[in-house]
């Protein structure tokens, strides 16, 4: 079981971000308060990671991720866009499902398990459909319930 923090306030549905940068800023805003980490620090880490290569995993999905000091658990944030946005995507589908995680610097073995879990979950067309149809944050969060994750 991987412990994660995911609450209503970490989720944005019908979002209207228009650029990759504004998406990363939005994630930083959503996660700053619950994690207690400065938004600029979160943004910087996510941005540095994107510079190495897009975290798009194809089919309209991206998983921006970064390691951060001073947090104890992984924090998850989810943004569903009304209109897909160019995300340096690895295929020709722009991105409209963004599932972002920040994880403790120290324990990145867990981080990888979480990434693997999320990418295989989001590979399921039914899950993507469910997320695109969701109208509020609780429907989104419900889609992420699984035996592998413990919401704390």
């Amino acid at each position: 079981m991987i412990k994660i923090k995911l609450e209503d306030s970490h989720v944005s549905v019908n979002d209207i971000c228009k650029t990759k940068k504004s998406i990363l800023e939005k994630i930083s805003d959503l996660l700053s308060r619950p994690s207690g980490v400065n938004r600029n620090d979160i943004f910087k880490r996510l941005y540095e990671r994107e510079k190495l290569g897009s975290t798009s995993i194809g089919k309209g999905v991206a998983i921006p991720h970064a390691r951060i000091d001073d947090i104890e658990y992984p924090f998850l944030s989810i943004i569903i866009l009304d209109e897909p946005v160019e995300f340096d995507n690895i295929d020709n589908l722009d991105v409209d499902i963004i599932v972002s995680i920040i994880v403790p610097e120290k324990n990145y073995s867990n981080h990888l398990e979480l990434l693997a879990h999320l990418s295989s979950k989001l590979d399921d067309p039914l899950v993507r459909k469910e997320l695109r149809r969701a109208r509020n944050s609780s429907e989104i969060i419900k889609s992420f319930h699984s035996d592998d994750l413990e919401f704390i």
């Binding site: 510079k51 190495l52 290569g53 975290t55 995993i57």
Partner: peptide, 13 residues
């Protein structure tokens, strides 16, 4: 990535 203009792959380090 800078020379090529972009990184067309999913890469981890």
């Amino acid at each position: 990535t800078s020379v090529f203009g972009k990184n067309p792959f999913q890469v981890e380090l």
